[in-house]
Structure formats: C-alpha cells, structure tokens
Amino acid sequence: MFRIIFSICLGMLFSQPLEAAVDPTKPLFGFSKSPSSTQKSKLVLQSIMAKNGANSAIVSGKLVQKGDQVNQYKVISIGKNVVKLQSPEGQLTLKLFAESVKK
C-alpha cells in the first residue's frame, strides 16, 4: 500500500512540466509587459549621464550618444529620463524610471 501511495505522489510530482512553474520573483499584480514590446526589443535603459551639455546613456550595457547605433536602432535623442530610438519599423522610447512609484 505504501509503494502505491509513494508511486502516485512521485508521479504527480514529476507530471508537471518545469516551464509551467511560476516565477517567485514576479509581482503579483500591477505590472505587466505587452508581448509585442518584449518581442520587439530587449533593450534596457540603465543610466543617463550629462557632461558639458552633452547627454550619453547606457543601453543594455553599451555607452551610446545621439547618432549611435544600438542593434537595429539609431539613437535620435537622449533626455533627462528618456532615450528615443528610431528604426525602419518605427520609434522606440526607453524610460529610465517606472511610470508610477508606489509607496
């Protein structure tokens, strides 16, 4: 009887696919990414620096300035908290901070 119960429990444990597991670090609510923006670009704005009136930014680990290429995108502007990129497919805006900060 013990072997049967043990076999059933073991079968249930390994019957779930591993990729179906929920990410424990994922927020429960209030945060979602649209699949099109995730698939379109995996670029991340990490930092913006200003020196002598010229802004530069770190996008996905690469230091860029206005006019530089990042993947298929060209940097068209670097603002205080935003970097705008242009490609043949359209414009992409990377923001340094989240839209809303909850306290």
Rank of each mutant, 00 (worst) to 15 (best):
G61L: 04
G11H: 01
V70G: 08
P27G: 06
D68W: 04
Y73R: 02
D23E: 06
P27A: 12
V101Y: 07
L45T: 03
L92I: 11
Q72C: 02
A20H: 05
G67A: 12
I78N: 10
L28K: 13
G30K: 10
I78V: 06
A57G: 04
Q91H: 03
S41E: 10
I8K: 11
S41T: 14
F14S: 04
I4Q: 09
P24C: 10
E99F: 05
S100V: 08
S60L: 08
K74G: 03
T93W: 03
V22Y: 02
I8W: 07
L13V: 14
S47M: 10
K51D: 15
M12Y: 06
L43H: 06
A57S: 08
K74S: 15
P88R: 15
M12R: 00
F6T: 09
G11M: 02
L96I: 08
K95A: 08
K84N: 15
L13M: 13
K95W: 01
F97W: 05
N55W: 07
L96E: 07
I58M: 14
E99Q: 12
M1T: 05
S15H: 01
S7W: 03
N81S: 11
N71S: 15
T38P: 00
K26M: 09
S37W: 02
N71D: 15
S87I: 03
N52M: 04
K66F: 10
S34T: 11
N81C: 00
G11T: 03
R3N: 13
T25N: 10
V83Y: 11
A54Q: 12
T25W: 02
Q46H: 07
T38Y: 07
K84M: 13
S32Y: 00
K26W: 11
F6E: 07
S15T: 05
